[in-house]
């Protein structure tokens, strides 16, 4: 029989701690496949965040850091500037990147650090048990918004991909989702492009991935996929937000 699918050697062969239905596993797989396909494993350094994916260093079969909450882009900056030959990526959730780490991500992007950021947006704090994230949808229930997110009190969800794309510094910024096979393929393509730009030494790259959290959303995995499509996708439009080629042209136009 012909083998058409197997484990990627870039993921350590062990069970993960993620909840049933969580899409972190899918994203781990996409990142791992990309590193494998680009043949960069032996010079890749990954940076795990604080949040659900805090243990990502257990799974990626490359050299890994564990960073403090939100600071992965600063750690990545130090690593990449010290050894530019390394391929450096951070893997961060929405609490880590969009709340406590807002300063680090914006400035790493604005300096044009040649790093790749994998940003997982599931609209909630997962590891701490379902509190409001900067990305929590208007009206969405969380343990710290028991009446639903009230935008009059706490503002609207932050669209990180668009925010970073608004910076003048050339970058590759895109948003995909991982709730369906079709979107997973698109996510893979964006992740591949993001790493490729770093390999070429072109620019900063960030891929935001809309992800599901059945445990803290209080929905089944199937319902979660539908909720993501119905509630999140209209607010967080998928697609490429910025490419270095067009960004360069914009800078030249002034």
């Amino acid at each position: 029989m012909k083998k058409i699918f197997s484990a990627t050697p870039l993921l350590v062969d062990r069970p993960t701690h993620y909840c049933p239905g969580c899409t972190h596993g899918v994203i781990h797989r996409l990142v791992a496949e990309t590193i494998d396909e680009l043949g960069i494993r032996e010079r890749t350094v990954g940076i795990a965040p604080v949040g659900c994916s805090v243990l990502a260093y257990e799974y990626f079969n490359v050299d890994m850091f564990e960073a403090s909450h939100g600071r992965a882009p600063a750690v990545a900056t130090g690593a990449k500037r010290a050894r530019p030959e390394l391929i450096v990526f951070s893997y961060q959730g929405d609490g880590d990147l969009a709340s406590i780490g807002m300063g680090e991500i914006i400035h790493a992007a604005n300096r044009g650090e040649k790093i790749t950021v994998i940003f997982v947006n599931n609209a909630i704090y997962g590891m701490t048990g379902g509190q409001m994230a900067p990305t929590t949808m208007p009206g969405q229930y969380s343990t710290t918004t028991p009446g639903g997110r009230n935008v009059k009190e706490v503002g609207y969800p932050v669209r990180m991909a668009e925010l970073i794309a608004s910076l003048r510094t050339p970058a590759f910024v895109a948003r995909a989702a991982v709730h369906s096979p079709k979107e997973i393929l698109r996510a893979k393509e964006y992740i591949r492009r993001a790493f490729s730009y770093q390999v070429a030494g072109t620019c900063f790259s960030l891929v935001e991935l809309l992800s599901i959290c059945p445990t803290n959303w209080g929905l089944s995995a199937r319902e979660s996929e539908k909720w993501l499509e119905r509630e999140m996708m209209p607010y967080y439009p998928l697609g490429i937000k910025k490419e270095p080629e067009t960004a360069e042209a914009e800078v030249k136009r002034g």
């Binding site: 850091f65 900056t77 130090g78 500037r81 050894r83 680090e104 400035h107 300096r111």
Partner: peptide
């Protein structure tokens, strides 16, 4: 290599990253 960080918080995490890669 000289990098002016956006804050001391970032600077101290940059030295963590740089020291970590040796």
């Amino acid at each position: 290599v000289f990098v002016q960080a956006e804050s001391e918080v970032a600077a101290s995490n940059m030295i963590y990253g740089a020291a970590g890669v040796g």
